[in-house]
């Protein structure tokens, strides 16, 4: 990624949320702009209770009988069972949603540039279809010690560490909308990635802010994760 500061409304691709987080400083991503930081102590905030809009980070996915093979041929580890996730050393997180469906969430290290490369590889001839998750879904990342506490106010699935350890995935209802919740780690911090219909971007952002308030939660930028 480049280290240039940009104005989020100037890029070709835009997160639906950029006006809500206009007080952040933005960094450019391959096509868009991402909130880099809000204040000096973002990383402490992120370790306690932070919320980060990662929608501009590249992600992709494949579905079909040969999707697992295709993933392997691209050098991605394949989670053994549905609703599991694995994170590569380079930071990409592999999410298995069913027997035949896989998503790759780009790394914050390169804002998903490596995923862009992988997505360019032709998928094998039959029964492996690239998915639309870059556009169909928004991506918010909840971080810190209170992830489970925040989610308990929004979601009926038990997301405490003992029942939802890192590597767990839940496809469930969050504040009355469908969402995929992935428990993984970024820069040693526990995070929950929430992927959900992009149309609900502003809605879920506000709902999460409200739920985070009792834990002194606040928006954080990617710099909080050592980027």
């Amino acid at each position: 990624m480049t280290d240039t500061m940009v104005t989020p409304g100037d890029t070709l691709a835009r997160s639906g949320l950029y006006r809500k987080i206009a007080d952040a400083e933005f960094l450019s991503t391959p096509e868009s702009a991402i909130a880099a930081s809000y204040s000096a102590d973002d990383s402490e905030q992120a370790r306690n209770c932070g919320l980060c809009d990662l929608t501009p980070v590249i992600r992709t996915g494949w579905r079909g009988k040969t999707a697992a093979e295709h993933l392997q041929s691209l050098g991605y580890p394949v989670p053994e069972n549905p609703n599991q996730a694995l994170t590569k050393d380079s930071g990409e997180t592999l999410v298995r949603l069913s027997r035949t469906e896989f998503w790759v969430l780009g790394s914050l290290q390169d804002m998903g540039t490596a995923v862009t490369e992988a997505a360019r590889q032709p998928s094998p001839g039959s029964d492996c279809y690239p998915l639309f998750c870059q556009d169909s879904h928004a991506w918010l990342m909840l971080s810190g010690d209170h992830c489970a506490g925040v989610m308990a106010k929004l979601c009926g699935v038990d997301m405490r560490a003992q029942s939802f350890p890192p590597g767990s995935v839940a496809q469930t209802s969050v504040a009355r909308i469908n969402a995929i919740v992935v428990h993984h780690q970024v820069a040693g911090t526990d995070v929950f990635s929430l992927l959900f219909d992009a149309g609900y971007h502003a809605y879920l952002w506000d709902v999460l802010q409200d739920a985070m308030a009792e834990f002194s939660g606040a928006p954080v930028g990617v710099r909080a994760f050592g980027i």
Binding site: R14, G16, R19, K153, A175, R176, I177, D197, A198, G199, Y200, H201, A202, Y203, V207, D210
Partner: peptide, 14 residues
């Protein structure tokens, strides 16, 4: 309680 009243906005909403 806190009312959850989900709404969707298109990319051109603003």
């Amino acid at each position: 309680g806190r009312a959850f009243d989900p709404y969707r906005q298109s990319a051109m909403h603003h």
